[in-house]
Design a protein around this nucleic acid. Structure first.
Lengths: 311, 311
DNA sequence: TATCCTTACGGAATTCGTAAGCATG
DNA sequence: CATGCTTACGAATTCCGTAAGGATA
């Protein structure tokens, strides 16, 4: 039994049991993967994969029993490397952050600048994706830290922490009739075409919920992943925008006005996710501390020790 | 990084950093061990062991941080084999039980007979030792199950369950003056020389505690590890014995009488220990069920999933 | 001086890539 | 007939044991 064999098995599960893909993903050849897996099965005395003819279709019962432990072994082998690096040069390494456009562009700006100044020898990777992709990246160990407002708490392998709360706001062209209202109401805004985030992005669920609760159907004419796109079309006069209020910059967004909507939509809580059982480099803990000081070191450690359940 | 290297490191810690011993224990040569460890250190970029000149003295700071994770990796690799075997032939394998003489000779008799009939193709290993040795055997994975009355709950890596309670009794030659007493008291027995278990064996602590509470000092003239030895000397008239009452057999021990002492000494609880994070073969669970039906399957599973803390 | 670790060397075993073969949808 | 796994072969690498060397208590 060796780590390579285990790595191939894990990757096969991830790549839908296509060994050609596995080989490509791990920079090796397909026959090598095929053989290594067979050797492991021989040594263990059980078939790990269900085969029909020459294709792999899924995990056998023993395979299902083994796969979680295999995952833990591989996580730990990675942890060993991380721990060692932490001692050999605690200020050098990589930090992979998976997040959404909104967080990357607005919430993380300051922290990332600060972090890069504090740890100039750490290479930062900023990976954008949907909240679901972010959760998967962290689950699979491709990212160390995930940051998003949605979806993260649906993965049992992840440990999530609330970081900060924020509200949506309406964004309208300067001089728009809504700017003359004392206090915004949903009834007033449904008169206008609306431009906002795509589903499952940046608190979109709270927006839908608020309208649904009132029984009104907003006329969402355009959706986008990021506030920049939304602002562009609001500026063109195609509708009024609903965006995270932090995405409005009074200096840069001359032609636009932000209208408070904190009384209309539920607060959104942006969460940070790490994988249970993953060792975090010292600078990764520092990053978390910079971004969300309210997460205590003790909380963090506890989450990391917690094993992923199996068998 | 490979399993062999990790195995050498773990064994080095266990064998007090003597690589010659490590090589002997793992059936290989000392230069091989030396090299493998150095290769691992090279790959990780940190020294795992503190060296003075050419001797290893202990773990470095990084070494201390790594050692628990290394242990978990090795435990899991063993688990993988066990899980696979469980499927390839669920009725064949080995079961190593570490226990004391008393348990092996009296309490386990019936269960072991029953187990061997139920699982004829499982090889049983019965390892005797002191309670401390038993705890260590289970901690190190050399035994699957440990059974003893003392010491087991002092090891954080172990998970222990109460199995059954029992009392000490006095054992005297037939016709001894004490047999004429209605009810035994400690005051009465201190008049006689006493033969009983060695310290830290078979509830000896409770015996000492009872005498100490009364402020009397018993005249312990002989101590032994097992009841058979104690009975032998009681029969020779060298004193009265205190043994676990289950060790008295009215049929075989003709010349001896057992006197109830359940009102004099605290009850003893025999416990069963397994290592946290260790996969148990199906028949091992069955053994536990036979020996201590009151331990629920759920309790057992939960203990096994619980990880050993690190970092 | 005995113990214990390191270095050097060479044979054995393992690993891994290329090329060809064969089953399946 | 394209996709995807297996088998066969050979080169490169890794592994591991023996023998000799050097440091320490």
């Amino acid at each position: 039994m060796n780590f390579q064999q285990l790595r191939y098995v894990r990757e096969a599960v991830r790549r839908n049991f296509n060994l050609t893909d596995v080989a490509a993903a791990l920079f090796t050849t397909q026959p090598g993967v095929s053989r290594a897996i067979k050797e492991l099965e021989d040594e263990l005395g059980v078939e790990v994969f269900v085969r029909r003819g020459k294709r792999l279709l899924g995990l056998t019962e023993p395979g299902k029993a083994l796969i979680d432990v295999i995952g833990r072994v591989l996580t730990d082998s990675r942890n060993l490397r991380q721990i060692a690096q932490q001692f050999s040069d605690s200020e050098q390494g990589r930090l992979e952050i998976a997040t959404t456009h909104t967080q990357a562009r607005y919430a993380l700006q300051k922290v990332i600048k600060q972090f890069m100044e504090a740890f100039p020898r750490v290479r930062l990777g900023l990976h954008q994706g949907t909240p679901v992709q972010i959760a998967e990246m962290v689950s699979e160990g491709r990212a160390d830290i995930g940051i998003a407002t949605e979806s993260l708490d649906k993965y049992s392998q992840l440990c999530t922490f609330p970081c900060y709360s924020w509200y949506h706001g309406f964004i309208v062209p300067a001089g728009h009739p809504l700017t003359r209202l004392e206090k915004l109401s949903l009834d007033a805004v449904v008169e206008f075409p609306i431009i906002t985030y795509e589903e499952s992005f940046t608190g979109r669920s709270h927006i839908d919920k608020a309208f649904a609760a009132l029984g009104v159907v907003p006329d969402v004419v355009l959706t986008a992943i990021d506030a920049d796109v939304i602002k562009t079309y609001v500026e063109l006069g195609l509708g009024i925008g609903i965006i995270a209020s932090m995405a409005y910059d009074a200096d840069k967004d001359h032609g636009l006005r932000l209208l408070d909507a904190s009384h209309l939509f539920e607060a959104n809580t942006t969460r940070l996710a790490i994988r249970k059982g993953n060792f975090l480099r010292g600078y990764a803990e520092q990053f978390i501390r910079m971004f969300a000081p309210r997460i205590s070191a003790a909380e963090l450690r506890q989450a990391l020790v917690a094993a992923n359940g199996d068998a």
